[in-house]
Simulated scan of single mutants.
Amino acid sequence: MLAESLEALAAAGGAAVVQAATTDAWTEVRARVARWFGRGDGERERVQLERLDRTAAELVAAGGTEQEQNLQAQVWRSRFEDLLEGLDDTERNDAAAGLRALLDDTAAARAVSAGTGGVAAGRDVSVKAEGGSIAAAVLHGGAHIGPPPVPDPSQG
């Protein structure tokens, strides 16, 4: 049986999968979750990618109903719990730390969104003009503007 804190972590993982499944963040969240479950095994990762794709398809087919969201969140909670239960203490601690980092990172990714024709980024964006062309971007919120970095000649 898992400690209460790990059960809560697994529940948060299940909720994160469902919350991201129909958003622009899905591609990133899907890949990160599959990698976490795969734990370095490409075949396990592939199986999880297929499961994640089925989850997203089922959520879309159900029209995102609360009932389907709850069902899928519980399915993924159980999957997270099962993996954590099957690990020894050291592996479990490492996996829990990895899941916490995944949840922190994907929460930031899910918080970023753009409307039709827009681009959203939770990290750096570069807009650059070359060869006499122009470049433009519209910013909503803050921005940091500074001189371009000076190339390091030793980095060739």
Rank of each mutant, 00 (worst) to 15 (best):
L71K: 14
A57S: 11
A129H: 07
L2W: 01
F80A: 05
S5A: 12
G156S: 09
A62Q: 02
R46A: 15
L102G: 04
E58G: 05
D105C: 02
D41E: 14
E66T: 11
R51S: 10
P151I: 01
G86H: 00
A120W: 04
A56G: 00
G156R: 10
A25E: 04
A135I: 07
L9C: 08
A129L: 04
G156F: 09
G86R: 00
V75M: 04
E4P: 10
L87T: 04
G64M: 05
R54L: 15
Q69I: 02
Q69S: 04
R79C: 03
P149D: 15
A10T: 00
G118S: 07
T23K: 11
L9A: 05
V60A: 13
R46G: 11
Q72D: 00
Q48F: 10
G132T: 00
R35A: 15
G141S: 03
S78F: 12
G40N: 11
E28V: 13
S126F: 09
A8I: 08
A120S: 14
A20L: 07
A31M: 13
L87K: 06
P148D: 12
T55H: 00
V75L: 01
V17L: 00
V125G: 10
E58C: 06
V138H: 11
D53G: 10
E81G: 00
Q67W: 12
A97L: 13
